[in-house]
Amino acid sequence: MNIELFFQYIVAGITYGAIYSIVAIGFNIIYNTTGIINFAQGEFVMIGGMTAVTLHSFFPLPYAILLAVIITMIAGALIEIIFIRWLVNPSVLRMIIITIGISILLREAALYIWGEKVRGLPYFTGTSVSSLSIGGVHVSPQVLWVIGISAVIVVALNLFFSYTMPGRQMRACASNRDAARLCGVSASNMITLSFVLSAGIGALAGCVVSPITYVQYESGTGLAIKGFTVAILGGLGNSMAAVAAGLILGILESLSIWVMPTAYKDVISISILLLMLFVKPSGLFGSKEAASLKEF
């Protein structure tokens, strides 16, 4: 085993792991406020990336990304208002099927608008061949962008949930919706806000990663599965654990290329998901006490 190659794989793993973490955090935000898993989370990433690519032909890169994130946030709000807000005590099965339906419709709409072509934003700095050498390991500057922006998202979210009024209200809804309502928090607005927030960070993730992985109308599904795996691995609802779990999954997946053909890369991560669900559905970092309150 070549030690340099090993580190190269580790870097690749961290890059993908960072993206998986962001998708997982998107799942967690909505799960915490509503108790539902939004199966359309991956589509937010796809729409963010695709919109940014289209807008980039009219605007410079930073504005294109900003606009794409805002458009995806509006789409997230509309989805919540049209499909979810007015349902009275929907069953879990019903919510699962509705969000799956939404993800199919978004994917088909993307196919209709953008076609089957694979697209990507240009590299934020440098080109696809430029690389920085860090201790003998060649790293594309875009990789640093991905890791950096993921870190900023995680820190910003933490600050938002700890110090701002809407952030605290969302946490209140997450821990006890009825009590939050009694204190004058509009729970339904908080749910809309959680869709806006997770659409926004999903879209940002889609923009940053698109120069490396490219986006296509159906790239959301794969990301959603990985994101969910990471969310489960860290413990559903726990955003900080999702970051650690994301990095673990990304690195495992990237190292799996050594023992198995690349075609089976996804098989590895989904097998990890299944194993985790069978053995410890509360997640790697989930506590037993918290798990006893949940329904697996």
């Binding site: 539902i36 898993i37 879990v92 099965l93 699962i96 599965i225 969910f228 795996t229 489960i232 559903l236 053909p261 075609a263 089976y264 996804d266 098989v267 989904i270 097998s271 998901l273 299944l274 669900l277 069978f278 559905p281 329904e295 697996f296």
Partner: peptide, 27 residues
């Protein structure tokens, strides 16, 4: 093991099984 799960966990576990079969036949 799958049927011990409920709700989202059951949905995701069965979905995961489907994807594994798909990726295996595809690869």
């Amino acid at each position: 093991p799958v049927l011990k799960l409920k709700g989202h966990y059951l949905a995701m576990a069965t979905l995961g099984f489907g994807i594994i079969v798909y990726k295996i036949v595809l690869g």
